[in-house]
Design a protein around this nucleic acid. Structure first.
Lengths: 193, 193
DNA sequence: ATTTTCTATATCAGTTCTATATATGACGTT
DNA sequence: AACGTCATATATAGAACTGATATAGAAAAT
């Protein structure tokens, strides 16, 4: 799924400007599984307007730059439906936090503990934000994704609280330093061939 | 965090080729929160070898292309530590699946149900894969991330099972079609000004 | 009074992804 | 026996996207 489809989906909920679409990706009901930057949103909106998938009207605002409000057309709705009638690929989850925790044995213990504590607080806050959105989810689709978010963030916060006393370290007693990954053990280079 | 840091981290567990690093990002203990493609890994390894962060030896393999096995140097380890001694930014989670579910009211009901069913099965399989890795996690870091993965995937699979009978629809009875997003309600365009 | 934050659009360099090309061995299958 | 497909292994071009920056006035905070 690309930025075009995201913008079409966002506009299917109602007219919006590029700035507002960006905010939808940052806050609100589906901020937790969408990413998009101005650098991709603005060109996409311009291109799609040229292609007839959107219409654009400039709303004059005294002082501020004109707000360009986009509406989705019938062609846009059709394109959106066709782009979403697929079997979705695997979710993409990238976590700097988990990478730091993974390699915490190489890092300063005090820093790791601070990172863990901060992340626990951040996640708890985000969970609250999602829960605050729950009542705004009124149709089956929005309810589903809000419920999914609550379930996942709840699990994450629970786990982080359980790990409050985490202690980094390179390996368990009696373990070889280089046998802790579990990756493709069967393919590990044999010493002699 | 960029591909460079990912490669350094991967190589801190032991020597590997570009192909093997890619597999670490696809399978194994930390496949669930790392993404990286050949198109970024190979150039990164070449560049870092030039920069003295890695060393490279070519392993001749009859028939197959030579395997370039990389080792991390002291400089590489230092760069890794400095790159990881930060406060991590927000996790990035992108889900085509949730976007389809969000807009399921616009889509074919039969298709949506198939998507939901397939995803439930896929997630259950992935959970099993993570659980199978659990015993291979031997140091605090790997245990932490494996536990986190299990907690999250467990929650996701539970939620998906609860939603087996999901029925897509555009809005609840009595709801205005355009009032279901909950985004910036306070800024919604006033009809007249 | 001054700084910061928010609204709002826009662009660009750098980064990363997707898809493809190459080459070979192993394995199944028609 | 020929064929397709899968796994190993490296590499790259082009598309897509991000992150940072620029501009500029209003509002809020200090």
């Amino acid at each position: 799924m690309n930025v075009r489809t995201f913008c079409l989906g966002a506009l299917s909920f109602g007219d919006a400007s590029g700035y507002e679409i960006k905010k939808m990706a940052e806050e609100g009901l589906f901020s937790h599984f969408i990413e998009a930057s101005f650098g991709s949103i603005y060109p996409a909106l311009t291109k799609m307007t040229e292609d007839g998938l959107l219409t654009c009207r400039a709303e004059n605002q005294s002082g501020k730059p004109d707000k360009k409000v986009y509406s989705i057309t019938q062609e846009g709705l059709a394109e959106m439906k066709s782009a979403l009638t697929i079997f979705p690929r695997k979710d993409k989850f990238k976590s700097e936090f988990l990478f730091i925790m993974l390699l915490s044995g190489h890092l300063d213990e005090v820093h790791v503990r601070k990172v863990l504590e901060q992340r626990t607080n951040e996640m708890a806050e985000e969970l609250e934000q999602i829960e605050a959105c729950a009542e705004l989810a009124k149709n089956p689709g929005t309810k589903f994704v809000n419920g999914y978010g609550r379930a996942l963030f709840n699990a994450a916060v629970d786990y982080l609280h359980q790990q409050e006393n985490f202690e980094p370290g390179l390996a368990d007693v009696g373990s070889d330093e280089h046998s802790t990954t579990g990756w493709h053990e069967e393919q590990k280079p044999q010493a002699a061939e």
